[in-house]
């Protein structure tokens, strides 16, 4: 029961952290200064949300390990689980993020599209977590994050329309980005075993997401793909080759110097 809850929280945290890390690669490379600032602001929000989630997961893990001695002790150099041990010392197989967020950056259009697909998912899921409120900490994190996510959905949605309904070149790139990323969206609505405990209502989540995405694609004169093969596995730890490289960079310092601070 409790293991399922921590796994669910880690799934949310990992997805948010990994997308933050990917977006962070744009820092200093955005197409114009204002948009460089926008994507890095969004990155900051994502990492902030991930921190809240990791802190909550660490608290739950530490409560459980007090109860049972058999629980695996936190990594060497650390007295207890913390946001840092969870982000920096878990392996690729332990990460539960969507495959969507670990895909490498290509052009600005692809980054915008990924943000829009992800933020829209986040928006409707967090609405559920906030409204249900059976887990008050999760509901509080969801409520606080939703204020930020609303900006992200609006900003990225506007960009999808601008680029889709823009020049021939921008439209071609957006269509290409959709072709590239759509096969990773099936996983957003494929329940993992640990999601039962969170009572996520996928029957509501998927149509809400699909309607929002279709509306924006329509306005952007972009087509919604039909009958696409969907890649899955990220939520349960089977990742594409890209995650390992990301973690190697993300975790380097804590792996080399456990517990280091500056």
């Amino acid at each position: 029961m409790s293991k399922h809850l921590t796994d669910f929280i880690l799934h949310l945290a990992d997805s948010t952290l990994i997308l933050g890390q990917r977006n962070g690669e744009w820092c200093g490379h955005g197409p114009v200064l204002e948009q460089d600032i926008a994507i890095t602001n969004i990155t900051l929000d994502l990492i902030g949300q991930a921190r809240s989630l990791y802190q909550y997961a660490a608290k739950l893990i530490n409560e459980v390990s007090k109860l049972s001695e058999s629980e695996v002790p936190p990594a060497e150099g650390f007295k207890a689980a913390s946001e840092d041990t969870l982000a920096y010392l878990r392996t690729e197989r332990e990460f539960k993020n969507f495959l969507l967020v670990e895909q490498p950056n290509s052009d600005w259009g692809q980054t915008i599209l990924r943000q829009f697909l992800f933020s829209t998912w986040q928006y409707y899921l967090y609405q559920q977590l906030k409204e249900k409120g059976s887990d008050t900490t999760l509901a509080a994190i969801a409520e606080k994050s939703l204020k930020e996510i609303s900006y992200h959905v609006r900003w990225s949605g506007e960009w999808v329309i601008r680029l889709g309904d823009g020049t021939a070149e921008s439209k071609k790139r957006m269509a290409h980005a959709i072709q590239e990323l759509w096969p990773y969206t099936g996983e957003l609505f494929l329940p993992a075993p640990y999601e039962k405990v969170a009572e996520v209502d996928f029957d509501k989540l998927k149509p809400a997401w699909f309607k929002k995405v279709s509306d924006v694609f329509n306005e952007a004169t972009l087509l919604v793909p039909q009958h696409v093969y969907m890649h899955t596995g990220g939520k349960t730890g089977t990742h594409t080759e890209h995650l390992g490289y990301m973690l190697a960079e993300l975790q380097y310092m804590q792996r080399s110097f456990p517990g280091c601070e500056w």
Binding site: A38, E148, Y151, R154
Partner: peptide, 13 residues
């Protein structure tokens, strides 16, 4: 509005 995101998370330009 020039940009919804400004010099810090809490500001727009």
């Amino acid at each position: 509005r020039i940009s919804e995101f400004g010099s810090t998370a809490c500001k727009a330009l």
